[in-house]
């Protein structure tokens, strides 16, 4: 029997131009009018000290789908839960919106979906709108797509092939190889969250 997949994402910061926010918003119907997104692409300026090259860096971020998710342990209702394949999900039927998860998340990945956002979403996204309840929402690695064998919307739309999505339990998977090689590193691993989103930075890049 095939091993249960353990999904992870690798983001190559060298090729990101920040195009995925819109694809994610449309797929997951986030309240963009309130500047609430499941994934953000920061537009940063890095380097520059001691005559180093100054670069513009697009820095995409999203829920890290931690193996030890602090947002899940603090969740009193069980709304935040982890699937066998590693994806951390939010059940908006259970979520009461206490925001303990937002406080616990080191990656600032949680955001409020309010009653107003639900109402306005109906207008904004029309008849296809699927949100019915408020919750403290976050990225789901597009679990609904992944389960149909598709890639997350942000990966699908990524023009620079900056975002890769794969299975860490498959040694032949590109993502798995990049993670194993050490080129792709997680954010703030010292917190013990065991994140599943890895980044390749300019300096680390070998190819």
């Amino acid at each position: 029997m095939a091993k249960t997949p353990h999904y992870a994402m690798v983001i190559d910061l060298n090729t990101c131009v920040g195009a995925c926010m819109a694809a994610c918003a449309m797929e997951n119907q986030t309240p963009v009018w309130e500047n609430k997104w499941r994934t953000y692409v920061h537009d940063m300026e890095i380097g520059g000290d001691n005559d180093e090259l100054i670069r513009r860096r697009f820095f995409p971020r999203l829920c890290n789908h931690c193996d030890n998710p602090p947002c899940m342990s603090v969740c009193p209702t069980g709304a935040t839960h982890k699937l066998d394949n590693g994806i951390v999900m939010v059940d908006d039927e259970l979520c009461m919106g206490c925001r303990a998860c937002a406080m616990a998340c080191p990656y600032d990945a949680r955001y409020d979906v309010t009653y107003d956002d639900v109402d306005q979403g109906k207008e904004f996204y029309g008849e296809l709108h699927h949100r019915s309840r408020p919750s403290v929402d976050k990225c789901s690695f597009c679990a609904h797509r992944v389960m149909r064998g598709l890639k997350p919307a942000c990966v699908e739309t990524c023009v620079g092939s900056s975002r890769l999505f794969g299975d860490l339990n498959d040694p032949k998977d590109e993502v798995s190889k990049l993670v194993k090689s050490g080129v792709a590193k997680p954010l703030m691993a010292h917190l013990g969250t065991r994140p599943n989103v890895y980044y390749i930075s300019d300096i680390e890049r070998t190819t």
Binding site: V17, A19, A22, A25, V32, F124, V159
Partner: peptide, 23 residues
Amino acid sequence: VPTVSYGSTNSNNPVLAAINTWK
């Protein structure tokens, strides 16, 4: 910018406009 070409109607797309507002 990756979100809009000048003067085209897609500059008025609400999702793209939201990204532009953020940045």
